[in-house]
């Protein structure tokens, strides 16, 4: 993760990591999840789903912070995130 200024307590803070699941055939391609993901982790897939829409695809899996916003903005119950067991310490981001 990039910081404009590394927090002073950076070594004690843990950043959540998420794994995104996409139920492609429920998606209607509105793009809300893509537009509002704070980490720009998603993009439209070039593939079509069963109904002919382009579902999202995770382009930067390492960026997902498990904020669930894609999950709660999606009108179709087509995407959600779960906590990844591997949490990255801010310490690592400094390097």
């Amino acid at each position: 993760m990039e910081f404009w200024r590394v927090p002073l307590d950076a070594d004690t803070i843990q950043v959540s990591r998420g794994i995104v699941h996409i139920l492609e055939d429920r998606c209607k391609g509105c793009g809300y999840c893509i537009e509002y993901c704070p980490k720009q982790a998603l993009e439209f897939s070039t593939n079509f789903n069963q109904k002919g829409y382009h579902p999202p695809v995770v382009i930067k899996p390492e960026e997902c912070v498990n904020c669930h916003y894609c999950e709660i903005i999606c009108p179709e119950f087509a995407i959600f995130s779960v906590e990844s067991l591997q949490t990255t310490e801010v310490e690592q981001a400094r390097t």
């Binding site: 209607k28 391609g29 509105c30 809300y32 709660i72 903005i73 999606c74 009108p75 179709e76 119950f77």
Partner: peptide, 8 residues
């Protein structure tokens, strides 16, 4: 419809 907010 696609983009309809009701689902959200």
């Amino acid at each position: 419809c696609p983009g309809c907010g009701i689902g959200t």
